[in-house]
C-alpha cells in the first residue's frame, strides 16, 4: 500500500501581529511550521503505514526552506520526503498548485490513498486537496473525521458484496466518515482516492528522538518543474487563473462598552441592546 501525504509550510498565524501604527503585518521572526491541519494528515498517513506496512511519502511545494517541514514529517514516521521547488511555481494559485502537485504525484507512481489537511491556515481555501483529485481524476472525500475501514487489496471479491461493485465502488475501497455542518455522512470510496482530514480524526503524536535522528539523515528528493511533466503555461503566476490585485489589513475590531452593575441591571440592559437584532 502506498500513501501520499501533501503538506504545506505556513507561518505560525497566531504570531502574525498587526503593527498598530502602520496597520501592517509584522512577520519578522515569525516561525514557519507545518500547516496545523496537515499534522492530522501526517498522523493518519503514519497510522496507516503502521497498520498495513504501507509506504508513506510526504510531498510539499514551496521554497527551498520548506525542506524543514518534510524532515519534521519524517521524524514523525513518514518514509520519504519530496520537495517540489522552482521559481517557475512562484505565485501559483490553487489551480496551478494542485496541477503541479498532481504532476509530481503522477511521477511518484502508483498510490492507494492521498491524504491532505482540510485546508491551510494561511490561505484557508480548502481547494488544493479536491483540486489534486480532479487533476488526477480520482474520487475525493473531504472533511474526513474517521476512516472506519480501509481495504487496499484489489480483487478480493469475497470480502465485498456484488452490490458495491455495481454501484461503482471497487473492491479496494475505504469507508470513511465525512463531517458536515449538521453531523457526518458515511461514505464508501474506491481506491485510489484522496481524502482531506479534520482535527477530529486523530491526535498527532510527538516526534521521537530516533525519528528526529532519521529525519536529519534522510535524503530529501528535490524536483524542479523540469523533473515533472507540467506545461509551464499552467504553473506559477502566469499559469494561474486568479490574480491578487490588492492586499489590505482590515480595521482591527475594537472593544465596545463594558456593562457594569448588579446582575439584574446588566441583564436588563443587555437584553434591551440585543432585542432588535434577534430575528
Amino acid at each position: 500500500m502506498n500513501i501520499i501525504v501533501c503538506i504545506k509550510q505556513v507561518p505560525e498565524t497566531t504570531e502574525v501581529k498587526i503593527n498598530p501604527e502602520t496597520n501592517t503585518l509584522i512577520r519578522e521572526g515569525v516561525k514557519s511550521i507545518i500547516n496545523p491541519f496537515d499534522a492530522y494528515a501526517i498522523e493518519e498517513g503514519v497510522r496507516l503505514k503502521e497498520k498495513f506496512g504501507a509506504k508513506a511519502t510526504v510531498i510539499t511545494m514551496g521554497p527551498p526552506q520548506a525542506e524543514a517541514v518534510l524532515r519534521e514529517a519524517i521524524s514523525l514516521g513518514i518514509d520519504d520526503g519530496i520537495l517540489l521547488s522552482d521559481r517557475a511555481f512562484a505565485g501559483s494559485d490553487t489551480w496551478a498548485t494542485s496541477y503541479a502537485l498532481s504532476a509530481a504525484i503522477k511521477k511518484i507512481g502508483a498510490f492507494d490513498l492521498i491524504v491532505c489537511g482540510k485546508q491551510a491556515s494561511d490561505g484557508d481555501t480548502a481547494q488544493v486537496g479536491p483540486g489534486i483529485s480532479a487533476h488526477l481524476d480520482i474520487p475525493a472525500v473531504t472533511y474526513v473525521k474517521k476512516i472506519e475501514e480501509i481495504n487496499p487489496v484489489r480483487n478480493t471479491k469475497a470480502i465485498i458484496g456484488e452490490d458495491k461493485i455495481s454501484n461503482g465502488v471497487k473492491d479496494n475501497f475505504a469507508r470513511v466518515e465525512r463531517m458536515t455542518e449538521a453531523g457526518y455522512e458515511i461514505i464508501e470510496v474506491s481506491l485510489p482516492a484522496l481524502i482531506t482530514v479534520v482535527k477530529e480524526i486523530n491526535t498527532p503524536r510527538l516526534p521521537s528522538l530516533k525519528g528526529m535522528m532519521r529525519a536529519k539523515q534522510a535524503k530529501i528528493i528535490h524536483w524542479k518543474a523540469s523533473d515533472i511533466e507540467v506545461e509551464l503555461n499552467f504553473v506559477g503566476l502566469a499559469g494561474s487563473p486568479t490574480q491578487v490585485v490588492k492586499i489590505f489589513t482590515p480595521a482591527p475590531r475594537v472593544g465596545g462598552q463594558m456593562l457594569k452593575g448588579e446582575t439584574q441591571e446588566i441583564v436588563d440592559r443587555l437584553v434591551g441592546l440585543l432585542k432588535s437584532d434577534i430575528p
Partner: peptide, 18 residues
C-alpha cells in the same frame, strides 16, 4: 551536539505541551 540539541528540543516540547 546535534543529538543533544534534538533531545533538548524534544524534551522541551513534551514539557511544554504535555
Amino acid at each position: 551536539t546535534d543529538e543533544q540539541k534534538m533531545i533538548q528540543e524534544l524534551a522541551r516540547k513534551i514539557a511544554e505541551e504535555k
